[in-house]
Amino acid sequence: MTEAKKEGKNEGFEPNIVAFCCNWCSYAGADLAGVSRFQYPPNIRVIRVMCSGRVDPSFIMKALKNGADGVIVTGCHIGDCHYISGNEYTKERFERLHSIIIKQLGVNPKRVRLEWVSASEGKRFAEVITEFTNDIKKLGPFKR
């Protein structure tokens, strides 16, 4: 699963993006983006989990392997986790995964991101998703 050296064609490219949102903060933030009508690109498909701590690295690998051009994991801000410390393990695990992805698999690290979004940050959710989608568009399709 080594990323092709050349970046893919970007024109008219609509990436497939998987987003994991924790139920209490980031999913609520995503809802608030909706309630506030903050618009963002329609490329993401949200999978709701109770805590970002639930996101097993294998989920991310599975998504990348099966055709996702980007994967974003969102959780409560550090200190705000509904489950006290779940997101701290997410962070630790994510950093490990990141280094594996880059060093061993050669995937551009920009394709996998971890962000904290609170329930009151609807605007931020929309901004994070917009930015991530635009970044992935620039990178082009993920050639496996």
């Binding site: 999978i47 989990v49 109770m50 805590c51 639930r54 996101v55 989920f59 509904h82 393990y89």
Partner: peptide, 26 residues
């Protein structure tokens, strides 16, 4: 409380989180 952090941590995939299990999310 069903957060599922244990399941993501388990090195052998021995923990099932009801309604948010590996096969379901997979």
């Amino acid at each position: 409380k069903g957060c599922g952090t244990c399941a993501a941590t388990c090195p052998v995939g021995a923990i099932m989180v009801k309604h948010y299990d590996f096969d379901q999310i997979g």
